[in-house]
């Protein structure tokens, strides 16, 4: 099966190789020019530059460094605090990059979960397939990068169990997700194998409601809210950095709690 993550046409790689030195000199020149014009702009306007490129790239470089620090701080054996079921907020808090009125419900009967990349068994999973796997429940705090939080109760298949059933290469770097709402996302393998990382099918004791990602979404106790894609349609195990929706707009990739 072809990976659903690969674009259909790729640019000819030899073009890049042929012009490598030119590209490098362009980058260098751009950096110097960018730095100079930034200084000039600051002098002239008292800084009404929203986000100069050089500042942006410096901040992103530090953010990538922070990703490595975060991965180093992440203890795969440390469990996030759990809470009594009585504290579960029903219904949970909704958030997306669009308002709730734009939610496009997914039909659970025709829904399939594609598996791709470094896995032994590349097949499409149905909802009953997932329901037949061992389930785990957790009542954990959902923490959003915006600052709010709530206690939520989630039930589903531990992602570790699922990856093992797929014969995934558990030494690969990334697990990447595609969703029905065009919200690509990816996580590190250490977090994917964490016991509090679930392919969630239920909230409380009820089937996941449409706005919260029916039929399957990711729920991790060790990452910020935006790392948890809803309406998952494909999973890929890969060593190539897959990025994500908010990550491409500037948010940190690791986003560990």
């Amino acid at each position: 099966m072809r990976s659903p993550f690969r674009p259909y046409t790729l640019p000819d790689a030899s073009v890049l190789a042929a012009h490598k030195s030119l590209i490098r000199s362009l980058e260098r020149r751009g950096l110097i020019r960018g730095g100079l014009s930034l200084g000039a702009l600051v002098m002239l306007t008292g800084c009404d530059v929203e986000r100069p490129e050089s500042v942006e790239s410096a901040l992103l470089a530090i953010s990538r460094f922070n990703d490595r620090v975060q991965a180093w701080l992440f203890d795969p054996n440390r469990l996030a605090p759990t809470y009594p079921e009585s504290m579960i907020l029903r219904p949970p808090k909704f958030n997306a990059y669009y308002d709730v009125t734009e939610v496009k419900p997914v039909d659970g009967t025709s829904w399939r979960l594609d598996v791709a990349g470094l896995v032994a068994e590349k097949r499409a999973w149905t909802l009953p397939d997932l329901q037949a796997l061992p389930q785990r429940s957790m009542v954990i705090q959902h923490i959003c990068v915006e600052g709010w939080s709530y206690i939520g109760g989630w039930t589903g298949v531990p992602l570790r169990t699922f990856l093992e059933r797929c014969g995934a290469d558990l030494r690969a770097k990334y697990v990447s997700f595609k969703t029905a709402d065009d919200y690509p996302s990816s996580i590190d393998m250490a977090t994917a194998l964490h016991p509090q990382t679930l392919l969630a099918l239920k909230y409380g004791d009820e089937t996941l409601a449409d706005p919260f990602g029916y039929p399957v979404r990711l729920r991790m106790a060790t990452k910020l809210g935006y790392k948890n894609p809803k309406w998952i349609t494909a999973i890929e195990v890969t060593n190539t950095y897959p990025g994500g929706f908010w990550e491409s707009k500037g948010f940190p990739w690791f986003a560990g709690l």
Binding site: L59, I62, S63, V145, G250, P252
Partner: peptide, 10 residues
Amino acid sequence: AAWSLNWHFA
């Protein structure tokens, strides 16, 4: 927010 966050974490 993302850039405020990046400034903060830098």
